[in-house]
Amino acid sequence: MDLLHLFTYGFFQHAVVAALLMSVTCGIIGTYIVSRRMVFISGGITHASFGGVGIGYYLGFPPLAGAATVAVLAALITENLTRRKVMRNDSIIAILWSLGMAIGIIFVYLTPGYAPNLMSYLFGSIITVTSTDLWLMLALALTVTTVFTLLYRPILYVSFDEQFARIRGIPVMFINYLLIILVALTIVLSIRTAGIILVLSVLTIPQNISNLFTNRFSHIMIGSVVFGFFASLLGLVLSYYLDIPSGATIIFTLVVLYLVARLIKVVIFGR
C-alpha cells in the first residue's frame, strides 16, 4: 500500500493530528522541564497519575479524568512541600511516584473483570485516539501556546533566577504553580498517546536534539516542536509498515534522530 493512501484512513488522520498537537504541547512544556531540570519531578507526576487511572477504573469514571486529578494534585503537593522545605525534594517525588503506582495497581486489581485498554495507558496508543481526546489536546495546545507567548519573559526570568525575579516584583509563585499545573496536564494528555512509561521521552529527547544546535530558550521550543512532530510522523509510518507498537516506535525514532543529529553536529561543526 502506498504512503499517500495511508493518510486517507480516518484512524491515521486522527493519529497525525494527535502527533502534531502532542508535539506542540510537549515541545514547549518539555523545554521548560529540561531547562529547569525538572525531569525527575515530571517522572514522579507521570507515575503518580496511574493511581488516578486505577481509581477511575474502579469507580467507573473515565480513567483519564482520574489521572488528571491525581497528576495535578501530585504536582501541587511536590511544589508546595519543596517550597516549604518540609522534605527533600527527590524523596517527595519518589514517594508520590511509587504511591501512585501502588494505588493504581490495587484499584485495577479490585476492579471486577478484565481492565480493557490498561496497556494503552502504560505504553500509549496514538492510533486509537478519539475525537474527544483530540479536542482536549487542541484545547491544551492552545492554552500552552497562549501562556508561553504572553508570559514568555516572566517565565524565562523566573526559570533562570527565581530570587532576582522576586526582587523585580514578578509573581514567582503564580508562575511556578501555573506552570506545574500545565506540566501535569501535558503529561496526562500525552499518556493517551505516548503512555506512562514512555511520556518522559517526548518531553526530553526533542529538546536535547534542538539543544545540540541552539542555546536559546525560544529556539529550543520551536526546534522541539519540529523535531517532535517529524519523529512522531516517521515513527507512525514505520510502526504501521513494520506492524509494531506505535508509541515505542516513536520513541525509538526520536533516539535515532538524536544520534543522527549528534553525528551531523560532529561532522559539520566539528564538535
Binding site: 533562570f160 533566577d161 523585580r168 509573581p171
Partner: peptide, 15 residues
Amino acid sequence: EVIASGLEHGLKMRL
C-alpha cells in the same frame, strides 16, 4: 536576555 530581565517589573504580558 539576562540583561533585559533587569528591566522587568511585575507581571506584564508583552509581545
